[in-house]
Simulated scan of single mutants.
Amino acid sequence: MNEYRTIDLEEEKNELGKIEISPEVIEVIAGLAASEVEGVHSLRGNFAAGVVERLGRKNHGKGVKVELGEEGITIELSVTLRYGVSVPEVARNIQTNIQQALQTMTSITLDSINIHVLGIQFEVQDEEGEQ
């Protein structure tokens, strides 16, 4: 049985109560922040995420995995980049953008952001435009 886990924001406890953030929220924020980076073609999810997306439900956390460990929060991101970009530069930009977005929106500090480049997308000509 899957245990429902949240992230407590210790510094945000006050007389009104505490704030908890679901890992799914972090996945969505990280996925959107990564897709904003110039040179990213797409995020790559697993087979199940692809099936769900084909059924009409948009999955903004696709290709993002959040791990809550003893040392902190780790994000694993799987991406496909556009042909011709500098892979290390785009990967660093993705890490920076995710870190800034999460810090601004949630005040969460991360242990690490690991980028997995799974492919390069070449420019594909539109067949209808050629005819």
Rank of each mutant, 00 (worst) to 15 (best):
Leu9Ala: 04
Leu9Cys: 09
Glu10Gly: 05
Glu11Met: 06
Glu12Cys: 08
Glu12Phe: 08
Asn14Lys: 07
Asn14Thr: 06
Leu16Phe: 15
Leu16Lys: 15
Leu16Glu: 15
Leu16Ile: 14
Gly17Thr: 01
Gly17Cys: 08
Lys18His: 06
Lys18Gly: 04
Glu20Ala: 05
Glu20Lys: 13
Ile21Met: 02
Ile21Cys: 01
Ser22Gln: 13
Ser22Cys: 09
Ser22His: 15
Pro23Arg: 00
Pro23Met: 00
Glu24Asp: 14
Val25Pro: 11
Val25Cys: 12
Glu27Lys: 15
Val28Arg: 14
Val28Phe: 09
Val28Gly: 04
Ile29Phe: 11
Ala30Glu: 11
Gly31Met: 02
Leu32Ala: 00
Leu32Ile: 14
Leu32Asp: 05
Ser35Ala: 13
Ser35His: 14
Val37Pro: 11
Val37Met: 12
Val37Phe: 12
Gly39Tyr: 07
Gly39His: 06
His41Tyr: 15
His41Glu: 14
Ser42His: 09
Arg44Tyr: 00
Gly45Lys: 02
Asn46Trp: 00
Asn46His: 06
Ala49Lys: 07
Ala49Val: 05
Gly50Asn: 12
Val51Glu: 04
Val52Thr: 12
Glu53Tyr: 00
Arg54Leu: 11
Arg54Phe: 04
Gly56Glu: 09
Gly56Ala: 12
Gly56Cys: 10
Gly56Thr: 03
Gly56Leu: 06
Arg57Tyr: 09
Lys58Ile: 03
Lys58Thr: 05
Asn59Pro: 03
Asn59Trp: 01
His60Ile: 00
His60Lys: 05
Gly61Val: 03
Gly61Arg: 01
Gly63Arg: 02
Val64His: 01
Val64Arg: 02
Val66Trp: 02
Val66Lys: 08
Val66Ser: 06
Glu67Thr: 13
Leu68Trp: 02
Gly69Gln: 03
Glu70Asn: 11
Glu70Met: 08
Glu71Lys: 13
Gly72Trp: 04
Ile73Asn: 06
Thr74Ala: 09
Thr74Asn: 11
Ile75Trp: 01
Ile75Ser: 05
Ile75Gln: 06
Ile75Arg: 06
Ile75Tyr: 01
Glu76Cys: 01
Ser78Cys: 10
Ser78Asn: 15
Val79Asp: 02
Val79Tyr: 01
Val79Thr: 07
Val79Glu: 04
Thr80Met: 12
Leu81Glu: 09
Leu81Lys: 03
Tyr83Val: 01
Tyr83His: 15
Val85Ser: 10
Ser86Met: 04
Ser86Gln: 09
Ser86Ala: 12
Val87Glu: 08
Pro88Gln: 07
Pro88His: 08
Pro88Ser: 07
Glu89Arg: 08
Glu89Ala: 09
Val90Ala: 04
Ala91Tyr: 05
Ala91Ile: 08
Ala91Cys: 14
Ala91His: 05
Ala91Asp: 05
Arg92Pro: 02
Asn93Phe: 00
Ile94Gly: 02
Gln95Val: 10
